[in-house]
Design a protein around this nucleic acid. Structure first.
Length: 271
DNA sequence: ATGGGCACCTGGCTGC
DNA sequence: TGCAGCCAGGTGCCCA
């Protein structure tokens, strides 16, 4: 599910409810997520005040006084703020119960999400340490993208989804950014011209920022901290629009498969 | 080092 | 109505 805009929307929605609150207890109803939720997490996190809630790529990092929780929403996860007394529904795997009487409830039908614990610098965690720069940071610019694309024979769309090179861009926003940059998804990264990188970087940033403004994209499962969907779906130019007219030139949008993932593009607008 | 394919899991939809 | 088959916002791991 969630790509950077949905994770960032979740972070912003949850932050006011958790920052400076004490975690009273953690209820793990289903520990079998992508990685088993550590048995000791509930005990170690309980009684600790939340110092800050950060996002790194598609991970949420809850920094406590001693240790951090690292949470990933996977494909179908969502995190909501609600009264701790609310009855749990199917796939409500974890509750983080706060001293405010509210809880953060983690729901994830497919269980591709994860909830981990570390007492070290969370950014040095094995899952986070190799992540590329944030696409909305200054570090991510045309010379950077050109340098990581150099000599890479993979398709540019798959390169954009490689978290060692670019983070936060998943299946929706890779297709969307390439549309706005006028680049065909199947072109080899090595064959992107130098003069195309600035437009591609601008498109990635523009699409991610615009999606955050709309509260992300809801296709199926995703809801924000208040249980509301994101509204960026209405602003998608190609994703899940196969056969429909391009919003710019009316040519039917095409669908193809790359690396076992659907890719959408306009055969006329994208070269 | 790079790239391709598989695995993990549940649920919704399509078409026979 | 039932059911097989396909598809879905991610990503670590294994293999060539």
């Amino acid at each position: 599910m969630p790509e950077l805009p949905e994770v960032e929307t979740t972070r912003r929605g949850i932050e006011p409810a958790v920052t400076s609150r004490v975690i009273e207890r953690v209820v793990v109803r289903e520990p079998r997520l992508r990685w088993r939720v550590p048995d000791e997490l509930a005990t170690l996190a309980s009684g600790q005040r939340v110092q800050q809630l950060r996002r790194r790529a598609k991970y949420l990092v809850f920094d406590l006084e001693r240790g951090s929780m690292i949470l990933h929403l996977g494909m179908s996860g969502s995190l909501r703020v609600m009264p701790a007394t609310a009855a749990p529904l199917p796939h409500d795997h974890v509750d983080i119960i706060l001293d405010s009487g509210q809880c953060l409830r983690f729901n994830d039908p497919r269980r591709f999400g994860s909830l981990l614990w570390t007492v070290d610098d969370p950014l040095k965690h094995p899952l986070l340490i190799r992540l590329a720069p944030e696409p909305l940071s200054e570090e991510f610019d045309a010379p950077y993208l050109a340098s990581v694309a150099k000599g890479r024979r993979v398709a540019i769309k798959q390169l954009l989804m490689n978290s060692a090179l670019v983070v936060g861009v998943g299946n929706i926003y890779a297709s969307e950014a390439l549309f706005h940059a006028g680049i065909r998804p199947q072109r080899s990264a090595a064959k992107i011209r130098q003069d195309e990188f600035p437009a591609l970087v601008r498109s990635i940033r523009k699409v991610l920022r615009a999606a955050i403004r709309q509260g992300g994209t809801t296709l199926r499962d995703y809801v924000n901290a208040d249980g509301q969907p994101g509204y960026f779906r209405q602003k998608l130019f190609v994703y899940e629009r196969a056969g429909e007219p391009c919003r710019v030139c009316r040519t039917p949008i095409k669908r193809m498969v790359q690396g076992q993932r659907a890719t959408y593009y306009c055969p006329k607008c994208q070269k």
